[in-house]
Amino acid sequence: MSTGANFADFKSDKKPTWCPGCGDFGTMNGILKALSNTGASPENTFFVAGIGCSGKIGTYVRTYSIHGVHGRALPVGCGAKIANPNLEVMVAGGDGDGFSIGAAHFIHAVRRNVNMTYVVMDNRIYGLTKGQYSPTSGTDLKTKTSPSGTYMPPLDPLALALSSQGTFIAQAFSSDLKRLVEIVEAAINHNGFSFVNVFSPCVTYNKVDTYQYFREALVDVNDIGHDPTDHEAAKKLILDSETEYQGILYQNPNSVSYEESHGLDSPMWDLSENPPEDILNLLREFY
């Protein structure tokens, strides 16, 4: 197993087809930098990508990867990690993928607490289908399918993770690379399911949730002396719908991963040509 891989080792020779200026560039760079900082190797990393602009990331990374069906990236990552707990499992997708078509999987992945990292590239819009509202779009966002606004409050991913007993809940911004890398790195190192919602602006279809908007609106939890292990404090920030926060909002320092609580510590791929002799005990039960 090679270690000490650098950032470039995690990049494939495919050039991204994202629009120039897309937030996904920054988010991808942040993820890959964080991976290399933690000492992960491309060989030992399993990357699961969803569908949408963000899902293309599976092609641009140089790790073992799968680009699955829309909304189901998390279960794939969960199965992979359980079947081989030695792998670094990274799942990435968009807000539509994670909070609309895949919302049920998000809730249960949070509850299950398998030790993997989930980065949502949240642009509050459907980009690849050319501009429809997403579950995180603001009520007033005018899109092709919401010409006078969505008439719905946006889904709050952090609150959803909190109410599902998430053990690592964070938010970052694609153009604040330093903080993004720090946060994703902490997410990778967390023992359990880590959720990082990364604002990754869509420069083509969302003229509201722009770089400039986030630059002005974001409050870094480090600047307000927030203790991420303080659940009550985290609750307050997460449920504060007036402010957009950046940073680790909550981390349970006593998190026990699914694998740990089930005693899963070995890869499952290796099989002998025949079963072990005690396989006959299965038959004996039927006598």
């Binding site: 909304g71 998390l74 279960p75 794939v76 990552g77 199965g79 079947a83 890869p267 791929w269």
Partner: peptide, 16 residues
């Protein structure tokens, strides 16, 4: 939906 994707994930790591 999740069950088959979990099985798929495991299979991609070489497990039956």
């Amino acid at each position: 939906l999740s069950a088959i994707n979990m099985a798929l994930g495991a299979a991609r790591t070489g497990a039956r």
